[in-house]
Design a protein around this nucleic acid. Structure first.
Ligand SMILES: [Mn+2]
Ligand SMILES: [Mn+2]
Ligand SMILES: [Mn+2]
Ligand SMILES: [Mn+2]
Lengths: 218, 218
DNA sequence: TCATTTTTTTAGTCTAGGCTAATTATTATT
DNA sequence: AATAATAATTAGCCTAGACTAAAAAAATGA
């Protein structure tokens, strides 16, 4: 698999995650920031490699083999992110782009040793689970913050958006992975919410922000 | 610079190292394991970027700017090799191929942090000096083992060949960076030599092997 | 249902980096 | 100095991965 193929397959995997059976050409183009015409071409190639099932005009469905390969790339991406944050003192908003390159280095030994060196981490700096070498991820149920009800409580365990802009914003307002939160108020009009962080700090946030924060109930 | 351009420029830099003013198309093709026709094409491109001076039919000369860029790639390569050996417990014969990929990751911050994490190493696992961030290398005079005379002494400080085959051979016979050696005998007929390692072990080696071992006199 | 809109694919073009075969320049040898 | 050998370049082709414009299929909705 080339770097481009790995990136496409990973995008298709992520687009399929919400349990969607099929992913459209336009969806992939959006995720990859390429044109639909380029996507059609790539889908044909990935179809021939049998990592996806591709029916012209009807979108694409990732195969078990494809899922396995995508999870390997994701594993590598997240392990490198842990390395950058834990060992090289990168901030959590600085790691995504570099990991996007590092994930394509081809060396099973490297990843095995890196995993050991990092002490077999289970989550990356954004709270996302790291698949094991067989592609198994232990997924605990998580809620999206903007869908929680008043008085519900929980802990921030992950973010959906790993862009520097979003993560810097969270840093600024004091939201972080592990923070204990409680829903204080919700505004029907715009969907914005008010939460209590660590039993001491009130925090208002827009629906857009809350929709990118994942909560686990304790 | 693309990965391919970086690899070519590095090869040209290494081929120029012996003080040779100009490097031939065939030399580059040999080092890169590509055909001369492909090299001609690349030389034109590198010439346009002014990292080399290219006169058709008369070989190529690396510019100061080219040297600077090559040294940055070499710096990255060698830092990654140190990381693999010191932190991930790779053997010195296992690192070259992986470093060949890692050296192309584009992130100045990454290299700066990696350097600090490794405690600013001055040499890679093969004894080669690591250029600093300005491209400066501190080069101490080194002799090639097969050119030394009987009774001369010194320390193995580096190897010229970083292939797994060669390094595994050195492991097997007990030669390593840092070993103190003394020339016991030389055979004119085939250039083979006998050395004493660490004042206790006699070691015979062919001219070919000795020609890839670098000695610093103490 | 049938026309319009939207989505997707195809056709054709481009660049990077390879290749082979043919040509040309340089170097070596009579 | 002329010819032969060698080295290097050019010409033409290929694949991967992008793109635009045109064509075709599917979805929408009057
Ligand atoms: Mn990537
Ligand atoms: Mn992440
Ligand atoms: Mn390389
Ligand atoms: Mn090395």
């Amino acid at each position: 698999m080339t770097t481009a193929e790995e990136n496409y397959l990973k995008a298709i995997y992520h687009l399929s995650e919400g349990g969607k059976k099929s992913v459209s050409t336009n969806d992939v183009a959006g995720a990859m920031k390429t044109k639909p015409a380029s996507v059609s071409d790539m889908l044909r190639k990935l179809g021939e490699k049998e990592v996806i099932e591709y029916r012209k005009y009807y979108g694409v469905h990732i195969t078990d083999e494809g899922k396995k390969q995508a999870l390997q790339t994701i594993r590598k991406h997240r392990l490198w992110e842990v390395f950058l944050v834990d060992k090289l003192n990168f901030a959590w908003d600085e790691v995504h782009e570099v990991a996007e390159e590092l994930e394509h280095i081809q060396s099973p030994l490297l990843i095995q040793r890196l995993d050991a060196f990092l002490n077999y981490p289970k989550f990356d700096p954004h709270g996302d689970p790291i698949p094991d070498e067989f592609g198994d991820v232990k997924a605990k149920p998580r809620l999206v913050l903007n869908e929680m009800e008043i008085d519900q409580m929980g802990q921030i365990v992950a973010v959906k958006d790993s862009s520097a802009a979003f993560l810097k914003y969270l840093d600024k307002v004091g939201a972080y992975i592990g923070a204990r939160i409680k829903i204080l108020d919700k505004t029907d009009f715009d969907g914005s919410i008010e939460i209590l962080v660590d039993q001491k700090k009130n925090l208002f946030m827009s629906k857009e922000v809350a929709a990118n924060i994942l909560i686990q109930q304790s």
